[in-house]
C-alpha cells in the first residue's frame, strides 16, 4: 500500500520567552510514522502525551523544530496538498452569527469549490451527517451534538483523501459515540484514510487498524489490530503496561 502520510524524525520543542528568560518544553520527540492509504490509524496516550501536537504539526498550525512531514509525497508545508486533508478539531469552533449552511458555504469556498457547486456539495454533506433539516439554524442555537456534526461536515465538504480527527469521540453521549464510530468506519470504507487521536481506548480498539502509543512526547509503540482483535480489553492492557513500564500514569 502507498503511504499517504510520512513523518520522519519529527521533533517539536516549545520555546517561551518571558522577561528575557527562555524556557523550553518538549512537545514531541523524534516521531516516525507511516500511514498507508485506506488505513485507520489511532493515536493514543495520556493527556500531554503529544497527540494534539503531532496533529497540529501535520496541519501546519505548529512549526516543527526538527524533522519532516510528507503528505502524498510532498513535503509540508505545501498549500496544494493540504487541500486533500480534512480536519475535525476536538471542540467545534464556529462563529456564532452564521447559519449551518452559511458556515459550510464558507469552508467550501475556501476549499476551492466553485460558487456554482458549493451549495449542492453542502447539501450532500449535510445529508451525510444527518443535518439537512437543521441547515438554516444559527450556530449559536445548535446543540453540542449538532456542532460536532457540522464540524464533521466542514471536514468532508471538499472530499479530502486524508481525515484528521482530534479526539472525535470525547464528550459524546452513547448515541453520538455510536454514530461517530459508524461514520468513521463508513468513511474509511469509502476510501478515506483516517488519523485520529483519542484516550478512549475501548473505542480506538473497535475501529483502528493500527495504533500508535504516545507518552511524554514520544511514539513508544506501534501496534496493529492483529495484536488485539478478538481479545476485548487487550489494547488497554498493552497500553497500561507500556505506560507503566516507562514510569507514566503514576497513581
Amino acid at each position: 500500500m502507498s503511504s499517504v502520510l510520512s513523518i520522519r524524525n519529527l521533533t517539536k520543542i516549545y520555546r517561551r520567552s518571558h522577561l528575557g528568560r527562555v524556557t523550553a518544553t518538549m512537545g514531541v520527540k523524534s516521531i516516525n510514522l507511516e500511514i498507508a492509504r485506506g488505513e485507520i490509524m489511532g493515536l493514543i496516550g495520556p493527556n500531554g502525551a503529544g497527540k494534539t501536537t503531532t496533529l497540529k504539526l501535520i496541519l501546519g498550525l505548529l512549526n516543527p523544530t526538527e524533522g519532516e512531514i510528507y503528505l502524498m509525497d510532498k513535503k509540508l508545508p505545501d498549500s496544494s496538498v493540504i487541500q486533500k486533508v480534512g480536519f475535525l478539531p476536538e471542540v467545534p469552533y464556529f462563529p456564532k452569527n452564521f447559519s449551518v449552511e452559511e458556515v459550510l458555504y464558507f469552508y467550501g469556498r475556501l476549499s476551492g469549490i466553485p460558487d456554482s457547486k458549493v451549495r449542492a456539495r453542502a447539501d450532500e454533506v449535510l445529508a451525510l451527517v444527518r443535518m439537512s433539516h437543521r441547515k438554516t439554524r444559527m450556530v449559536r442555537e445548535c446543540s453540542k451534538g449538532m456542532l460536532q456534526r457540522l464540524s464533521l461536515a466542514q471536514a468532508l465538504i471538499h472530499d479530502p483523501e486524508l481525515l484528521i480527527f482530534d479526539e472525535p469521540i470525547t464528550g459524546l453521549d452513547p448515541v453520538g459515540l455510536n454514530e461517530m464510530r459508524e461514520m468513521i468506519v463508513t468513511l474509511n470504507k469509502s476510501g478515506k484514510t483516517i488519523l485520529f487521536s483519542s484516550h478512549i481506548i475501548s473505542e480506538v480498539e473497535r475501529i483502528a487498524h493500527r495504533v500508535g502509543v504516545m507518552e511524554g512526547g514520544e511514539m513508544v509503540q506501534t501496534l496493529s489490530s492483529d495484536q488485539w482483535k478478538g481479545r476485548p480489553g487487550h489494547l488497554e492492557e498493552i497500553f497500561v503496561q507500556t505506560i507503566h513500564s516507562r514510569g507514566g500514569l503514576a497513581v
Partner: peptide, 13 residues
C-alpha cells in the same frame, strides 16, 4: 475562539 484553525488548515496562506 480558535475559529482560525479551520481556515489555516486549508490551502489558505
Amino acid at each position: 475562539q480558535r475559529t482560525l484553525y479551520l481556515v489555516l488548515t486549508r490551502s489558505v496562506s
